[in-house]
Structures are given as C-alpha cells and as structure tokens.
C-alpha cells in the first residue's frame, strides 16, 4: 500500500490538504500531515515521525510532498539519515495539485510510480 506524507511549514496547511485529499479520493488512501505548530517551520524529525506513522498503518511505499524548498530538504534528510522500512520517494511536484493528482491516482488503483508521475505531471497542467 502506498501512503502520502504532506510536509508543510504549517501543520494546519498540511491538515487542510489532508482533508481535501480524503474528500476527493476517499478515506482509503493513507495520508499523514506534519508541520510546524505555533512557530512555523519544518525539520527532519517531524518528517521521520510522519513516515513512521504511515509505515505503522501498513504503507510499504511513501510519497512525500513538501510546500517550500526546506520541506523538501528536510524530507530528503529524513529519507537518507533516518531510515524506515518503507520505500520513500520525495516528489518534485506542486504541493496541492501534486498531492491531489497522486491521491486520485492511488484511489483508482494506481501504484506508487504511477501516482508519482501524475504528481510531477501536475506542473504542466495550467489553470487558465
């Protein structure tokens, strides 16, 4: 099972996106959100906690989405320096659109690779 980890400088922002993903693609997709509470920001430890929650739920692959550059740096650090049992992919995609594309792909039977491709593709889809 593939899980989605949302990493934001603001936990509220990540949680809001988590709700959106569940409303668009159903409750079956594993989504976790981590981020700053009170003081905004993100670090590798937060990411690691999110990864652990998803592996505990049974995720064997995890797609990680970040809001700004340092969320991605923290995710890469967690991936390299704090290993978990799942395969972790740090995805280069827009935070909202990418995560939505991945969740919809997963909820319709897509695997991790397919969901990741859908997320990266989201950069190309213009809004107007």
């Amino acid at each position: 099972m593939t899980g989605i980890l949302l990493v934001s400088h603001s936990k509220q922002l990540a949680q809001g996106l988590e709700k959106l993903l569940h409303s668009l693609s159903g409750e079956d997709v594993f989504v976790e959100s981590v981020g700053g509470v009170g003081s905004l920001g993100v670090d590798a430890t937060m990411v690691m906690e999110g990864l652990n929650q998803l592996t505990d739920m049974g995720s064997t692959e995890i797609l990680v989405f970040g809001d700004l550059g340092s969320a991605i740096l923290s995710a890469e650090n967690a991936k390299d320096l704090m290993p978990v049992s799942a395969r972790v992919h740090v995805v280069d995609a827009p935070f909202v659109e990418g995560a939505v594309a991945a969740a919809m792909s997963l909820s319709t039977g897509g695997g991790a690779e397919e969901a990741m491709a859908a997320a990266e593709e989201a950069y190309q889809i213009r809004k107007r």
Partner: peptide, 19 residues
C-alpha cells in the same frame, strides 16, 4: 542541528555534518 534548527539551514548544516 537537524532536529533543532529547522528550515533550510538546519537541513543543510545538519545533514552535511552527519554525512
């Protein structure tokens, strides 16, 4: 540094010193 600095500086200084 990884777990206390946060942001890009924490991520960069932290991982560099570990690696």
């Amino acid at each position: 540094l990884l777990s206390t600095v946060g942001g890009a500086s924490g991520a960069l200084w932290g991982s560099a010193m570990v690696q």
